[in-house]
């Protein structure tokens, strides 16, 4: 990773490798649903089965691309807890780095849907007063998510006592 998106002085903490399978299964299910409905409609109603094949083929390519890219996507997710701020980075094509000072956190949210739970994953989300903050860390093992949540809330509190 280049220096633009590196945290100062530490290495990124990576998210769980299980996140890759979670993403792949998610993409596969989405592709299947999205492609099947129009493909079957086109085939049954208009008898254009070649078009259905094309639709399926297109989504199969998408899925293939995701299979090839998911490793890089996973590797580019990262977070780092520094003394005063939390750093989060993500993205392969569109890279981004979000830095949230602990003192600005209003809510630390941990969510884990049934699907995520099946993979043993949870998502931590930070909310500030700004709608554009976009600080979400997916693919954390539940223990790590809980630790992060407690740690962040504690730090948020400590940062604020001086105000």
């Amino acid at each position: 990773m280049d220096e633009l998106f590196a945290p100062p002085g530490t290495a990124w903490q990576q998210i769980s490798p299980r996140w890759r399978s979670y993403e792949l299964v998610g993409t596969a299910v989405a592709c299947l649903l999205l492609s099947t409905v129009p493909a079957v409609l086109v085939g049954v109603l208009a008898d254009l089965w070649w078009l259905s094949a094309a639709i399926w083929g297109f989504f199969a390519l998408l899925l293939l691309a995701d299979v090839l890219l998911v490793r890089r996507r996973w590797r580019n997710w990262g977070y780092a807890e520094l003394d005063d701020d939390l750093y989060i980075t993500r993205g392969v094509m569109f890279r981004r780095l979000t830095v949230v000072p602990y003192g600005r956190m209003q809510v630390v949210d941990v969510t884990s849907g049934p699907f995520e739970r099946a993979f043993g994953l949870a998502t931590v989300k930070l909310v500030t007063a700004s709608a554009s903050t976009d600080a979400t860390i997916p693919g954390l093992p539940p223990d790590e998510a809980a630790r992060l949540r407690d740690q962040l809330s504690q730090r948020a509190e400590a940062r604020l006592s001086g105000l």
């Binding site: 633009l4 998106f5 094509m93 569109f94 890279r95 981004r96 780095l97 979000t98 830095v99 949230v100 000072p101 600005r104 500030t128 007063a129 700004s130 554009s132 903050t133 976009d134 600080a135």
Partner: peptide
């Protein structure tokens, strides 16, 4: 200020 972000798209890169 609530937070700071850096973003970079492919063309910017």
């Amino acid at each position: 200020t609530q937070s700071v972000r850096i973003t970079q798209g492919p063309a910017q890169r």
